[in-house]
Amino acid sequence: MTSILEVQNVYSGYGKIEVLHGVSIQADSGEIVCIIGPNGSGKSTLLKTIFGLIKPKRGVVLFSGRDISLKEPEEKVGMGIAYIPQGKNIFPSLTVRENLEMGGTPLHDSRVIEKALQDIFQRYPVLEKRMKMKAGSLSGGERQVLALARASMVQPKLMLLDEPSLGLAPKVIEEIYERINAINHAGVTFVIVEQNARKALKSAHRAYVLDLGINRLEDTGERLLNNEEVKRLYLGG
C-alpha cells in the first residue's frame, strides 16, 4: 500500500488561537480513514489545514509524497483533492445541474465538463431527475448526495468529508455511506470527520481519535468501535 496522504506533526489554528497541537495522520491509497472526537477537538480544523483553507504553522502535509502544506485550495483541487465542508455545502440558488457544473470548474473545457456531467447522471439518476430544480429545494440527504456527486466531477483521488451525516436521519445516513463505499470501491481514498461516529467507524478501514487538538488513539474502525474507552468517551456509552 502506498501512502496518499501524510499529515506530520501539524500545528494549526485561527489567528493566534492554536487548535491543533501536533497532529499526525496518514491514509493509504484506497482507504477510508475516519477521524472522530468530541466538539472542539480540532477535526474540522484538521481537514481545513489539509485542504489549505488554513495554513499549518508547523509540520507538513504530504500528498502522494509531495509537500503541499502551503498550497492554495484552488491548486489542491487541480491535484485531485476534493473537500466537502460541513453543513452548507451546496449552492442553494443554483440548479442541481449548475451545482454539478461548478464542481467541474477545474476541468476548464465545457465539453469535458459536459461529459463528466453525463457520467455523474448515469451514476446518480436521482440527480438527473432533479437537474432543473433549485438545489435549495432538495432534502438534506439529497443535498449530501449532490455534494458528493459534485466533488466527484473532477474524479479526485482523495476526498475530505466534514460530517457528511450532520442533521440526517439514520436511514439517510445509511444511504450516504453506501454512496461513499461505492465511490471508495472505485479507488477513491476518503478522510471523513464525524462527530456521530458509529456509522463512520463501521465503514472506515482505520480511524483516529482526536481530542483537544492532539492524537488520542489510532486503530482499525472495527476495534475502535468495540473499545470500551472510545465507547464511553466518544460514542455516548
Binding site: 452548507k88 455545502n89 449552492f91 461548478m102
Partner: peptide, 12 residues
C-alpha cells in the same frame, strides 16, 4: 454570491 467559501473550495 451564494457561498464564497464554497466557491473557493470548488476551485472557482
Amino acid at each position: 454570491s451564494d457561498n464564497l467559501e464554497l466557491a473557493r473550495v470548488m476551485g472557482i
